[in-house]
Simulated scan of single mutants.
Amino acid sequence: MSDPVVSLMPVRSADLVVGKPLRETIYDWHGNMLLAAGYVLENQAQVDELIDNGFIKDSAWDVIPTAPRPSMPMAQSKKPVVAEPPKEENNAGKEVVVAMDDVRWYVGETLYLQLIDNSAVRYTVRMIGFVKNKTVFVTAPVTDGKFEFVRDGQTFVVRAFSGKKAYAFVTAAVKSVHSPHPYLHLAYPKEVRCTVVRKGVRAEVDIIAAVSLGSPERSCAAIITDLSMGGASATIKQMIGSKGDEGQIKFKVRAAGQDEFLNLKMVLRSVAPSENGEGFKHGFEFVDVSIHDRLILSAFVHQTLAEGD
């Protein structure tokens, strides 16, 4: 049975003021207490972190999170008191319902539109902005360099990713505007569903890669069959290396409309015959990944997941 929707809502920036006590207790995604009501925020960095990761109870929440760790007295600690989160896999797929204006949307945010009555039709657009309870503005859908015709009333499932969170809502096209610049009005959604994307979630792919492994170095071609932020599975014609061998894996992805080349340090963690009997399936763990490469991986994995739903 799937987990029920948790009645938490993201903390509002208006409720967080440096130097003033919190009016409400703030929880993490799992319902564990982060900061008790009355805690005095020290700096803007704390405020920004809570806007991205903090939640408060809404009026419908009548279940208190079980056994949160008690907060330390204010006189003893100035740092946020963070409860130990439960294991990630126990919370995979747990959902909250949030308001459109409670999400930290950015101009230029990538949104994925999928027609409800024809799931094969998908568009990638950018958010321009929104007017609360009125409309959401996005760039006009483009395919092969040509603007797509979207009729008024067409309904879409819209998906977006921000950090570790995936958002989805249902909306309809209100009006296509062609001048002076093409853009699309979407109906303002009544609610947005928000789900945490697990760190280890994998996207099914078919990517050609170059692998070099061990000492002396052995190199070969590979086909990456699934990819995550933490590693990849790849099929290679012959068995290459032993568990624990270190090496490099190089491949190209297209993320946010640009081709990006990745050259990642990795460790071989598993080798087994492939399911179809052709070659061997190798499991690689990425190590020492730069911030830049993490951003590329995150964008590509999230984009692939959205387009594959």
Rank of each mutant, 00 (worst) to 15 (best):
K20I: 04
Y106D: 15
G129H: 05
T304E: 09
E89Y: 08
D48P: 05
A210R: 03
A37V: 00
V40I: 15
V267A: 11
Q303F: 07
A166M: 11
A67S: 07
G277W: 12
M9T: 15
H282W: 00
D15I: 00
E42V: 12
N91K: 12
F137C: 06
R193H: 06
A173V: 05
S233Q: 14
S219G: 05
S228M: 01
Q46E: 15
R104E: 12
V150R: 04
L262I: 00
L34H: 11
I249Y: 09
V121A: 11
V63W: 03
V97T: 10
K175C: 03
V98W: 03
G277H: 11
L295C: 08
L186C: 12
S298P: 00
K199L: 07
G244D: 06
L295M: 14
T171D: 05
F280Q: 05
W61G: 02
F161N: 14
Y106I: 11
D117V: 03
A99K: 11
K252I: 14
E285N: 01
V301H: 07
A172K: 12
K165Y: 15
I240A: 04
Q303A: 15
F149Y: 05
Y167R: 04
V17E: 09
V97R: 10
I224R: 04
H178N: 11
A255L: 14
A75K: 04
V192K: 06
E204Q: 09
V40K: 13
L111I: 02
V150I: 14
I208W: 01
H282K: 00
D62S: 06
E148T: 08
N276E: 07
K190A: 11
V271F: 07
